[in-house]
Design a binder for these strands. Structure first.
Lengths: 102, 102
DNA sequence: GATTTATTTTATTATTTTGCTAAATACCAA
DNA sequence: TTGGTATTTAGCAAAATAATAAAATAAATC
């Protein structure tokens, strides 16, 4: 339940949402992620920084590679918070909370 | 199931999320919403435009007033789409879809 | 028609975001 | 320690965003 600065801002860019989806199941190397986009490496690195600042990804070095992994619990918290705020899909939100706490 | 351009961008600003919450249950006048913020009227008007472009609010005139109402189904679609993309809270997402289609 | 109320649009300014290239850093292997 | 691979940081330009004050629009009322 960290301070999560700007999770929704981080989610606002389609490239960042796709990064999250790619790094969902297992950590992926920065370069491997970057290959999926038609953007320069430094541009992707900037997106990693935004996601990292929001707490949405974690990073770990393995050798020369940096492996990024999505932190879905932070996202779940944010979505849950939004749904609370809007009293949206009460049942769905409860289910989401249970999943998160499991 | 409209074209929804930039729902997540629209959600990125805290003022806009609060507007959505305020206009959730019944339509509210622009001025009434604006009074809840320490911002100039044209600033709020700009936020209304962003929300409207994303399909997240609708507007209707009554006399000299413009009444804004949240369109939660568009939001539900967007959240559901994100949850699909991230395979996040399968059960919660199904519940959300049911609520939306009801 | 003139006035009042409610709100928007226009024009301007400051700031942030997104992208790039070039240079720097980190690690591994010969 | 030199070289190669992986990735970042630095610096910059263009575009988008967020805010404001001033002017314009729309509807109701006098």
């Amino acid at each position: 339940m960290v301070d999560q600065p700007d999770v929704f801002t981080a989610l606002a860019h389609p490239v960042r949402r796709k990064i999250l989806a790619m790094a969902r199941d297992e950590a992926m190397a920065a370069g491997e992620i970057a290959d999926a986009f038609d953007l320069a490496r430094p541009t992707l690195s900037g997106h990693f920084n935004v996601l990292k600042a929001a707490g949405l990804i974690t990073v770990e070095r393995r050798g020369t590679k940096l492996l990024y992994a999505a932190n879905l619990s932070v996202l779940e918290d944010a979505l849950s918070g939004l749904m609370d705020m809007l009293r949206l899909g009460e049942a769905a939100n409860e289910t989401l909370k249970e999943i998160k706490d499991a």
